[in-house]
């Protein structure tokens, strides 16, 4: 009986986590729309829209990449299903970011856009990140996972490459004050570190030890 309750509780928490993720990922878009309606985007709304969408893309991508490391470190299995959701939302924000660039900023003037991509390193890097994310979004279905088997995992490691490119993209567009992009870079490095096999094994070892110690304490208390 207790077992069934536990299962139900887990299902509920899982559902709530998903709802929170949906809301959290849509919130920045709603805020952007609201600020646009209220003319709160400053003298250069085009830049503000592009920058804000870029920022939300980066944060969502970081969260996507954080899911597995957080599972490893804290052992919270329930957040697993959020990875795909966060990844897809990140891609949605990225598409809007790109749309804002080619539409609002450049009004689809392709000659300007081609120059912008070639001449501006940060655009080139950002665009490459988009090209890497595209197949990941397309192969995010269960069907693709089954079809690709082992290759799916290898393919989706590209998300880390996209993350690195996104940070470089940010780093290359700021004017000298590198604090913020460097913070994202440090977080990304930490996440990558946890994915390293040896680091991962060590963390899992610590967790097993801690668990045993805890169990030991509980038994001795009885």
């Amino acid at each position: 009986m207790k077992h069934v309750d536990e299962k139900k509780r887990r299902q509920l928490v899982g559902r709530l986590l998903k709802i929170a993720t949906h809301l959290g990922a849509i919130l920045p878009l709603a805020l952007l729309f609201w600020d646009y309606q209220q003319s709160n985007l400053g003298a250069d709304p085009v830049r503000e829209i592009t920058l804000r969408l870029g920022k939300s893309t980066l944060i969502l991508l970081m969260l996507t990449l954080a899911v597995t490391p957080v599972q490893i470190v804290l052992g919270i299995k329930q957040i697993g299903p959020l990875r795909r959701l966060l990844g897809l939302y990140s891609f949605l924000h990225l598409c809007l970011h790109l749309l804002s660039f080619v539409w609002l900023d450049y009004l689809f003037e392709w000659s300007f856009i081609v120059d912008a991509i070639i001449d501006q390193k940060y655009v080139l890097v950002g665009f490459t990140a988009f090209l890497l994310m595209l197949p990941l979004a397309l192969t995010s279905t269960n069907w693709s996972m089954r079809r690709l088997g082992k290759k799916w995992k290898q393919l989706h490691r590209l998300s880390y490459v996209a993350g690195i490119l996104a940070v470089v993209h940010f780093l290359w567009l700021v004017k000298n004050v590198y604090t913020e992009p460097l913070i994202y870079g440090a977080i990304l490095l930490l996440l990558l570190l946890v994915r390293n096999r040896r680091v991962k094994q060590r963390i899992l070892g610590w967790r097993r030890k801690a668990k045993r110690a805890k169990v030991g304490v509980t038994t001795s208390a009885h």
Binding site: V46, D105, Y106, L107, D115, Q120, K121
Partner: peptide
């Protein structure tokens, strides 16, 4: 003459869309 990291060929006039 471009900035090493971005193009100086176009600009956005504040208040306008496009370049």
């Amino acid at each position: 003459v471009d900035h090493p990291r971005w193009s100086q060929g176009t600009e956005r006039r504040i208040g306008e869309l496009g370049r």
